[in-house]
Lab assay of single mutants.
Amino acid sequence: VGDQVLEIVPSNEEQIKNLLQLEAQEHLQLDFWKSPTTPGETAHVRVPFVNVQAVKVFLESQGIAYSIMIED
């Protein structure tokens, strides 16, 4: 199991704000291929294997929908 690319769908401005804060966490080494800008629009982010669980827990705790787009 390696890195994953998640497709994330924020449903409101609050969730977009939370994702932008997540993007700013440099220690997570997230690679946003497509940043969140509009509710209902997908964002794509590559998550290093060591941080996959932490990111998924965060998304679930914020009620942000996501799916695994690419499993490496």
Rank of each mutant, 00 (worst) to 15 (best):
Q25M: 14
E23Q: 13
P36V: 08
N12S: 08
E23K: 15
L6W: 10
I8S: 00
F58V: 04
L22P: 03
I16T: 04
E26C: 14
Q62T: 07
S61I: 06
S35W: 12
L19P: 00
L20C: 06
F49G: 14
I68G: 03
R46Q: 06
E71C: 15
M69I: 10
K17D: 06
V5L: 09
Q62C: 15
E14P: 03
D3P: 05
A65P: 13
E14L: 11
I68A: 05
V52A: 06
L22F: 08
E60K: 05
E13A: 10
V47R: 00
N12Y: 02
K56Y: 07
V45S: 02
L22D: 01
E7V: 14
N18K: 14
V47A: 02
V57E: 14
P36W: 03
K17C: 09
G2L: 09
W33Q: 11
E41W: 10
R46S: 08
I64E: 00
E23D: 08
Y66M: 01
E71A: 11
F32Y: 05
K17I: 09
F49Q: 14
Y66V: 02
E23H: 12
G63F: 04
R46V: 06
I8A: 02
V52I: 13
L19W: 01
G63A: 04
L28C: 08
Q4L: 14
A54D: 06
P39R: 03
L22W: 10
L20N: 06
P48N: 06
I68P: 04
V1F: 11
V9Q: 06
A24G: 09
I70A: 11
P48R: 05
Q4C: 15
E60F: 03
K17V: 07
V5F: 10
H27V: 09
Q53N: 12
K34M: 05
Q29V: 08
S67Y: 08
A24S: 09
V52W: 10
R46A: 07
G40L: 05
E13N: 10
V1Y: 13
G40S: 04
H27F: 09
Q29A: 09
Q15V: 02
M69E: 04
V1K: 11
P10E: 01
M69L: 11
D72K: 12
S35Q: 14
F49D: 07
W33P: 04
A54T: 10
T37G: 06
L59S: 00
Q53I: 12
P36H: 02
F32S: 02
M69W: 07
V55Y: 02
E26A: 11
N12K: 02
H44Q: 13
S35I: 14
K17Y: 11
N51T: 05
N51A: 10
S67A: 07
G63N: 08
H44W: 15
E7C: 15
V1T: 12
F32D: 02
I68N: 04
Q29D: 09
T38K: 13
A65I: 10
A24R: 11
L20H: 06
L20K: 12
D3C: 15
G63E: 05
I68R: 03
A54L: 12
K56G: 03
F32V: 04
Q29I: 05
L22E: 02
E7T: 12
S35G: 11
L22S: 02
P39H: 03
Q62D: 02
P10T: 05
E60A: 05
E41P: 02
E13L: 12
A54P: 04
T42Q: 05
A24T: 09
D31F: 13
P48C: 05
E60Q: 06
W33T: 15
L59H: 00
Q29F: 10
T38M: 10
R46T: 06
F58M: 05
I8L: 08
F32W: 15
E41M: 08
T42Y: 05
I64H: 00
Q25H: 07
I16K: 02
N12M: 03
L28P: 04
S67C: 12
V52F: 11
P36D: 03
Q62W: 14
G2W: 12
I8H: 00
V52L: 14
H27M: 08
N51E: 07
A43P: 01
A65M: 11
S35R: 15
N51V: 08
Q15R: 00
Q15N: 02
V50T: 09
I8Q: 00
Q4F: 14
V5H: 08
Q53F: 08
K56R: 10
N18C: 15
A24D: 07
K17R: 12
Q62I: 10
E14G: 07
